[in-house]
Simulated scan of single mutants.
Amino acid sequence: MEISMEKDLLSPGAHDVAVDGLTQRYHVYGSGPVCVAMPGGPGVIWESLRMPAAEEFLTMVYVEPLGTGGSQRLPSHPDGYSRKRYTRSLVGLLDRLSLPLVILLGHSHGGFVAQYFALHHPDRLSGLVLYESAPVTGPPHIAEAGTKIEEFVRRHEGQAGLPRVLHGLQSMSVTDDEEITTTLRDLMPVFFANYWERENEFGSLRETISCTYISSLDEKLEPDIIDDRDTLPSLAVPTLVVVGRYDVQCGPRWAEELHALIPGSRLVVLEDSAHMGHLEEPAAFANALRDFTRSIPA
């Protein structure tokens, strides 16, 4: 893969720039208004968020967050990757690209980062897309995910591939890049509404997806607490909330709460998706994004 260094920073392909003294890698595809996409995990490769249907009407800038892929690791790795630190890096990237206003799309953990960014730098955004995000983590989030996992297991009882998923659920406390990648691949069916029925479409992603282990501790080795419920009602950025009906990690309960908290937000539920609606229902996902983009004041 050829990496562009300091030439046309919004030309198609992969680019490396120095931000805050660290290498920041990102990938550009498509044309139209700029949408910066922050993947989830944290630590999951950016390719899992690639959305060609959106590239037909948006210039998609897919970020490899610090510590992931070709972007540089912090000296404190695997700790220190707080939402504040990711936001600082994103601000620096927008400055390097000379982009005063963009649409920011955050998927899963990337949605938590996008929320934080929007609350602290609303002047840098024309729009915000919270895709499989939630206003809070911790015990309530864990309990809801547990309920959704039980529903997933019941729905797929007797499926030959279910024991591998259950093994992955028992291995979620791993702290090694190779082990967390293995666990992520074991768990892949959980991220889809009907993985085994469409394994010919999604199986290659399961074989190739990878993840870097990144802890939930900040640079002071304190948990990076996420609870935006008190501040989201002050958010004035046009916002689209997207969720898959069968999402286990950040399901409809949290999307509905985000929608209720954020004034004037739009809510789109993808009825045949779980956590990867841009792959499961690409046309519906792209249509929601296109309609939202058209609604943003010029």
Rank of each mutant, 00 (worst) to 15 (best):
E280H: 03
S273V: 08
P238W: 08
R206M: 05
D218A: 14
L205D: 15
S210Q: 11
P252I: 03
L261D: 14
W254V: 01
L261R: 13
A193H: 11
P263W: 04
R229H: 01
S273R: 14
E197G: 14
Y213P: 13
E280V: 02
D228P: 06
G203L: 05
W254E: 03
P252H: 05
I226M: 13
I225T: 07
D224I: 08
R245P: 04
T208K: 13
P263C: 08
E257N: 08
S216P: 00
V237L: 00
A260N: 15
E222L: 04
H278Y: 00
L240T: 04
W196I: 06
Y195P: 12
L279A: 07
L258A: 00
S210I: 01
L270C: 03
W254G: 01
T231Y: 04
A260W: 12
D227Q: 05
E256Q: 10
R206A: 11
K220Q: 12
S273G: 10
D228W: 12
A236V: 02
V269F: 13
E281D: 13
L261E: 15
V243T: 04
R229K: 01
D218R: 05
R253L: 13
Q249K: 01
F202Q: 04
Y195Q: 12
V269A: 11
W196V: 06
P233T: 02
T231D: 10
N194W: 06
L217D: 11
T208C: 10
H278M: 00
E256T: 07
D272R: 13
S273M: 04
V237I: 02
D228F: 12
H278T: 03
S265Q: 13
P223V: 02
H259Q: 15
R229A: 10
E207A: 07
I209R: 03
L232I: 02
W254I: 03
T239W: 11
P238K: 03
G277P: 13
S204T: 07
V269W: 13
V237N: 07
V248I: 10
P263F: 05
T212C: 02
Y213E: 09
V237Y: 03
G277Y: 05
L217N: 14
L267W: 15
L270P: 12
V243P: 09
V268S: 09
L267E: 15
L217E: 14
T208W: 13
G264L: 12
E219W: 00
S204R: 04
G264R: 09
V248P: 14
Y195M: 15
D247K: 05
A260D: 15
S204V: 01
I225E: 06
G244V: 03
S204A: 06
S204F: 02
S215Q: 02
M276K: 08
P238D: 10
L217F: 08
L232S: 11
N194F: 03
D227L: 01
T208L: 04
F202P: 10
T231H: 06
L279S: 05
E201C: 11
Q249G: 14
V241N: 06
S216M: 00
R206P: 12
D230F: 02
A236E: 13
R253N: 11
S210A: 08
A260L: 13
T212W: 00
R229Q: 08
P252N: 02
